[in-house]
């Protein structure tokens, strides 16, 4: 298996540790004037998303994780898996519930997502930062109530619940920031 020396460490590098793939978030050289040098890193477990602090002796090697981030188009869900297509190779990949996780709330057919492949299989899905989804259920808005700050829950076509201003109606499409899960605006008329 290919490996990296600690002197190649930089943020974004994908490494294996205790059988799990990790990405390096931060890498700091720690070296006493007389004594052993270390690389102190923050690494994110690509399976669990947890960030941990670890330290490597400088000069040590670690295995590289066979991890790739690929832009893919979301095709459909079949009740068990979510299906994506690599638009360059037209190769299709099925992601299970664990890999998709909360991203399922924001997946809209034909949107382009970042699929993290680990040993060739989807490990996690990152939806686009902004998606436009249709409201399937919300309380009726009050006429003329466009300026006050009131909000209400709205249920989207994907099953997600988003808090929206009172003036937004059922059947409308809205724009959402998937990183915060917050309403941004009404969708542009298309």
């Amino acid at each position: 298996m290919a490996g990296y020396n600690t002197n190649e460490f930089r943020s974004g590098l994908k490494i294996m540790l205790d059988g799990d793939p990790y990405t390096i978030v931060e890498n700091i050289l720690v070296k006493p004037g007389k004594g052993q040098a270390f690389n102190r890193v923050k690494i994110r477990n690509l399976k669990t998303g947890r960030v941990v602090d670890k330290t490597f002796k400088s000069g040590d090697s670690v295995d590289a994780a066979d991890v790739m981030e690929v832009d893919m188009q979301y095709l459909y869900a079949d009740g068990e898996d979510w299906h994506f297509m690599d638009q360059n190779t037209f190769e299709q990949h099925a992601a299970n519930k664990t890999a998709v996780g909360d991203a399922a709330l924001w997946l809209k057919e034909q949107d382009i997502c970042v699929v993290t492949l680990y040993n060739g299989a989807p490990l996690s899905i990152q939806p686009p930062n902004f998606v436009e989804l249709k409201i399937v259920e919300t309380d009726p808005g009050l006429k003329g109530d466009t300026a006050t700050g009131g909000i209400k829950p709205a249920y989207l076509e994907t099953g997600a619940m988003v808090r929206v201003p009172l003036f937004v109606d059922q059947g409308e499409s809205i724009r959402i920031d998937t990183r915060s899960g917050e309403y941004v605006s009404r969708a542009k008329e298309s």
Binding site: L17, Q36, F38, V52, D53, K54, T55, F56, K57, D60, V62
Partner: peptide, 10 residues
Amino acid sequence: KQGLVAAEKL
């Protein structure tokens, strides 16, 4: 325990 990897080699 403090997060050093492969401490047993040092």
